[in-house]
Design a protein around this nucleic acid. Structure first.
Lengths: 247, 247
DNA sequence: CAGTGGTCTAGACCACGAG
DNA sequence: TCGTGGTCTAGACCACTGA
């Protein structure tokens, strides 16, 4: 049934359930277990690999959550059809988005500033009106071509270390993680059609009446604290937004 | 520590871990455990409620996945700041989307047809060129006003029962679930700016040069089989798309 | 009926973080 | 050092499925 049980090393510092997850992923990747097919039952895996059934279950449950497997009560566990990139709706940013499209990301800093929170900003960032806020206005480039205008607002108290960093062509999220110890894990965003502020049209190399995709986003750390409020104007003729959804 | 342990009923058919989840949700909802605060440790909950630690863990792990709690190694489990609607990126559809906006959804059927799959359709729906496909072209209404044009394509073999159903003002997803036994759990979609086909501009009550939000989507069942390919043109002046993301 | 996944127990050892 | 979450075991009973 299983080619070789050597794949599980109980002495390894890598958790057993994690090794099993990787083993199952490999079986699927290599087409040994095909989409729609039944995989060995929990008890079978548990016995053949000489590990506890609860450990097997931890691996299977995580793979079900990741969408690689699905289960039917009383029937067994099956390989899901791949088709979908396996991760759902990843939190991404301009830098990694462009990299995944095979383009070279860039950022030209137009404004870096410390301002006082307006009522709207205070609301978005969970601050008080008048609290200090870092404003960062950048032109985002893809393969050296203008792609978007991005105006970010960050609570000064959390993000001030970035003011001492070189921001040109750097990933803001990477800086927030490494310099401010802020781990961004969730975001809420809206997408709508908008138009360019005429003063900024030239920067994007469009005319003022060109429709743009306006993406407004608030990004949060794992404890739910907002860290960034950003408005991005993407050139509608060059950008297409892609997402995956689940129930 | 815990007001009363009566909340866990071991005789109930409701799983213990599930009762515990609900209990914790209540504690958070009622402000007894506040955002950012430490909640009792796994061992504490296990002892006080007289249930196994593994059972406590199952409840906590699921709540962490749902974003209500977060954990720090060696420190404990904390209540996450609410702020975000708790569900991430739900798979939604026009009907429930409009209901959640407090508007009355509607659908006017323009075309129902059985056609042969083109190359593109065959690819999207995992069919062979020429296979039968149900085409459904509808004008979607919100509070009786035109909001979007939606052209859906479904594999005839899976979706044919809907042809015998009244489609006017019905939710397609609801019909697919109840009449075709198709449970849609995932989707992949793209959002971009587009313009209306001049022949259809009048239906949306816009001029042909009005920018629209084009949402293209393929929807899948839990085993990864595509069930619907749909192109929706939303009026950019009336619609704003909203999503939540996580790592 | 036998086999499946779903739930649950009562232990155990580990690595990590704080004082 | 002590308490935390992370991992793991070897059992158990249940409800559900298909034959």
């Amino acid at each position: 049934m299983l080619q070789n049980k050597v794949r599980i090393d109980k002495k390894s510092p890598i958790p057993i359930y994690y090794q099993l997850k990787n083993f199952i992923k490999k079986q699927i990747e290599n087409g040994i277990w095909k989409p729609g097919e039944l995989i060995p039952s929990e008890r079978e895996l548990s016995e053949e690999l000489e590990i506890s059934r609860m450990t097997v279950r931890q691996a299977l449950i995580e793979l079900v959550n990741e969408g690689l497997l699905f289960r039917k009560r009383g029937m067994g566990t099956f390989v899901a059809k791949p088709k979908l990139d396996q991760n759902l709706t990843k939190l991404t940013n301009f830098t990694s988005d462009m990299l995944s499209r095979g383009m070279k990301p860039g950022a030209k800093v137009l404004v870096v500033n410390t301002i006082q929170a307006t009522k709207k900003l205070a609301e978005k960032l969970n601050l008080l009106e008048g609290d200090n806020v870092v404003e960062l206005f950048r032109l985002r480039l893809a393969d050296e071509e203008p792609m978007a205008l991005e105006r970010s607002f960050l609570p000064y108290a959390k993000a001030f270390p970035i003011l001492e960093e070189e921001l040109e062509n750097r990933s803001l999220y990477e800086l927030l993680r490494s310099k401010c110890n802020l781990n961004l894990v969730r975001a809420k965003q809206t997408i709508e059609i908008s138009y360019c502020d005429p003063r900024n049209a030239a920067l994007l190399e469009v005319t003022a009446d060109t429709p743009l995709l306006l993406i407004e986003r608030v990004t949060f750390t794992e404890d739910g604290e907002p860290v960034e409020y950003v408005r991005s104007y993407y050139r509608g003729d060059r950008y297409k937004f892609s997402i995956e959804l689940s129930v």
